[in-house]
């Protein structure tokens, strides 16, 4: 079973950067697999993704990007016992799974994402999961179900994780495990 590392934080907190560094430090041989859950819906999103790609390319580490907007478990087939996998990020994955293009709302996607994570862990050497912090505001009824499933997913990932970090202002705080 692959080592599991959970990294969360706010928007632009430096969590992806830290996750990429952590992934590179775990690499012994072979490629780093980047499972990108984001689907560019407008120019700003495209620019955001380009910036992330540029940041990764600039570090002289062999990254292989796999576009994975839904069904992350399907990426397991291309992994082996040397693979270090970075999944970015749970919030986007959950929205993609919940709000399918045909407009139907998927009721319980939490199970599907959990089993996808398990499939990745069965094949890989290490799995790093990035996510975004939940809100600290009262929830409106429209986002209640999304927030509940995200919160429950985060709780499950943290309980399974060997290491968990909360990144704020670029500074990772170790919440669980022994750290680096």
């Amino acid at each position: 079973m692959a080592q599991l590392i959970f990294i969360t934080g706010g928007v632009r907190s430096g969590k992806s950067r830290f996750a990429e560094r952590r992934a590179a430090s775990l690499r012994e041989q072979g490629t780093l697999h980047y499972l990108a859950c984001g689907e560019p819906s407008d120019e700003e999103m495209k620019e955001r993704i380009r910036r992330h790609q540029h940041d990764r390319a600039a570090k002289n580490v062999p990254w292989e990007t796999v576009e994975c907007p839904t069904d992350i478990g399907s990426a397991a087939a291309s992994l082996n016992e040397h693979s270090v996998v970075l999944l970015d990020c749970v919030t986007t994955l959950l929205s993609n799974e919940l709000f399918q293009k045909d407009g139907t709302l998927q009721q319980e996607t939490k199970q599907k994402i959990q089993s996808g994570i398990e499939k990745l862990r069965e094949r890989a050497n290490a799995l790093i999961i990035v996510s975004n912090e939940l809100t600290f505001e009262p929830l409106t009824s429209g986002v209640e179900s999304y927030a509940r499933q995200l919160g429950e997913l985060h709780q499950w990932i943290v309980s399974e994780a060997d290491e968990a970090y909360l990144v704020e202002n670029g500074v990772p705080r170790l919440m669980k495990g022994a750290g680096v």
């Binding site: 912090e133 939940l134 809100t135 600290f136 929830l139 927030a147 509940r148 995200l150 919160g151 429950e152 985060h154 709780q155």
Partner: peptide, 10 residues
């Protein structure tokens, strides 16, 4: 803590 962080379970 925030909503759905597992407070009651804890």
């Amino acid at each position: 803590g925030g909503a759905y962080n597992g407070k009651s379970k804890w």
